[in-house]
Design a protein around this nucleic acid. Structure first.
Lengths: 106, 106
DNA sequence: TTAAAATATGGTAAAATTACCATATTACCA
DNA sequence: TGGTAATATGGTAATTTTACCATATTTTAA
């Protein structure tokens, strides 16, 4: 087991931070199914266009999504194949924690 | 593909937020190998004991770690088996993003 | 060339996160 | 009982994050 440096944990944390917002999780969920442009995502997220654009910049900055320009439009897509496993883990934590809470109420 | 509610994304985000800090990532890394008490973790993290205690409370709140009391000491351990897959994904994002940046410099 | 559509970005106020200090609480031991 | 060790928690200042408005930039169409 190799010892990691603080820098490495900071790099990891930066990626995790990019994932740590409800709207960005929703966008990634949508983008996993198909690429979408900013206008389409803005409708789904129900926030200001500038807000969605900034969320996308955060995801792009850490390499979670990629862009393809088509005319005036920007089509975004997920850039890594491991996200579904990622979400499964989060979901598992939520489920087991729910179970724990139910058991502790008996 | 089931449509998810805003509440569900908020619940997910809460778990991801708990993961989104360098010190907490380090602690989870350590706790994956063996359970540790607060004093031991405090030494590793190199922060105030109260700071570490609060980090642990955040991880516990969302069900990522569990505690076992032994006298005056609290031994913490990881509460889900999927974390290594989680970290592999983060690591993959970091690696591919690094590669992208290198390629774009050519 | 103007106008409109699509996206990105600067600015800013509000909210959330973070770290440390001080201190409370609990357990153990002399 | 008094003292110490281990942990948790309240308070607070500093930092970070967030959302929206206003506006800049780019592209397409009239």
């Amino acid at each position: 087991m190799n010892k990691k440096t603080p820098k490495q944990y900071e790099a990891r944390a930066k990626v995790v931070k990019a994932l740590a917002h409800p709207s960005r999780l929703l966008m990634l969920d949508l983008l996993q199914q198909q690429e979408m442009n900013v206008r389409e995502l803005t409708i789904e997220v129900e926030a200001d266009q500038s807000t969605v654009s900034k969320h996308l910049a955060i995801l792009k900055e850490v390499g979670l999504v990629e862009v393809r320009k088509e005319g005036a439009m920007s089509y975004y897509r997920v850039a890594c194949g491991c996200l579904s496993g990622f979400f499964s883990c989060i979901e598992a934590v939520l489920q087991s924690d729910l179970k724990d809470r139910q058991e502790s109420m008996q």
